[in-house]
């Protein structure tokens, strides 16, 4: 059986695409579309690239309303909608604090996201409070996975497994020898033991945590998610996995639930119909 596989660098991590049982030439073309779309999103949404739309927003949106491209506008609108639905736990303004930017009044105020003014008619963004910054790192991978899902659907590919940095997995259809894809979340310190096992079919799984397991087996702790309540990096060593039909939703909610922890999770989850989560470790 043909198995297509390839990997590319994007958004500071790697994107693996596995497509079994399809013509390789078609897979190559689909892979290339996924790569282009993902890198295109990165070029617009990157906090680090000075040429990106986000960098331009962070420099100029506090001066006057700034007209921006459709992709960035859509990403910010979606992010603000999730901000509301997660009761503030998912916050693209607070996320910028992880870059060590000065915790000025605008960013550290309780609901800094209210300082963002979008105008749909003109497709503009304006920061009501000077000093505000945004970071879309928490939604970029989800948006890329969502486009990848659409690209695969348009090509008529029913079975595929996509992994974006291993924290986000999209399992379409089934494994050639099964009726789903079987995925286990490894214990970072004991990879032969699974903390939890999933049987996924046409579903996404996103996991948030701060223990990075390197390919050589070593484990590094990298705290990278800001708690909007405290304006500090979340330091608890735990994992939360969210499964959902929508890769975007899974991505955003795993970050939000990681922030609020087990106690606050149910309140957020009640705003969403088709998701399931589990805290691990």
């Amino acid at each position: 059986m043909n198995i297509f596989h390839n990997t590319f660098f994007a958004m500071g991590t790697r994107f693996d695409v596995v497509i079994p049982g399809e013509e390789i030439a078609m897979c190559e073309s689909v892979y290339s579309q996924i790569q282009q779309k993902t890198l295109g999103l990165e070029a617009k949404l990157s906090y680090y690239d000075p040429q990106s739309t986000v960098s331009r927003i962070n420099r100029e949106a506090e001066i006057k309303p700034l007209r921006i491209d459709e992709q960035a506008y859509r990403a910010i609108s979606i992010a603000l909608n999730y901000h509301r639905l997660t009761n503030g736990a998912f916050d693209i303004c607070k996320a910028a604090l992880k870059h060590g930017i000065e915790a000025n009044a605008a960013v550290s105020t309780k609901d800094s996201a209210l300082g963002i003014v979008l105008n749909q008619n003109n497709q503009t963004i304006y920061f009501r409070w000077p000093g505000l910054k945004i970071d879309l790192g928490g939604i970029g991978k989800g948006l890329a996975m969502e486009s990848a899902k659409n690209i695969l659907a348009q090509a008529g590919i029913q079975n595929a497994l996509l992994s974006f940095g291993e924290s986000s997995v999209l399992a379409l259809g089934k494994h050639p020898k099964g009726d789903c894809w079987k995925v286990g979340i490894p214990n970072a310190n004991d990879p032969h033991n699974f903390l939890h096992q999933f049987q996924l079919r046409d579903e996404a799984l996103s996991t948030s945590g701060n223990l990075h397991r390197n390919d050589d087996g070593s484990v590094t702790e990298i705290d990278h998610i800001i708690d909007p309540e405290t304006n500090l990096l979340v330091k608890k060593n735990k994992l939360v996995s969210v499964r959902s039909a929508s890769p975007l939703e899974a991505e955003v909610l795993s970050t939000a639930l990681f922030v609020v922890g087990e106690d606050g999770a149910e309140k957020i989850a009640s705003n969403f119909k088709q998701m399931w989560y589990v805290f691990l470790g």
Binding site: S167, S168, V169, G184, P191, I222
Partner: peptide
């Protein structure tokens, strides 16, 4: 079962 999931690979 394939082992996958955790914080993003860097």
């Amino acid at each position: 079962i394939i082992p996958i999931g955790g914080a993003s690979w860097v």
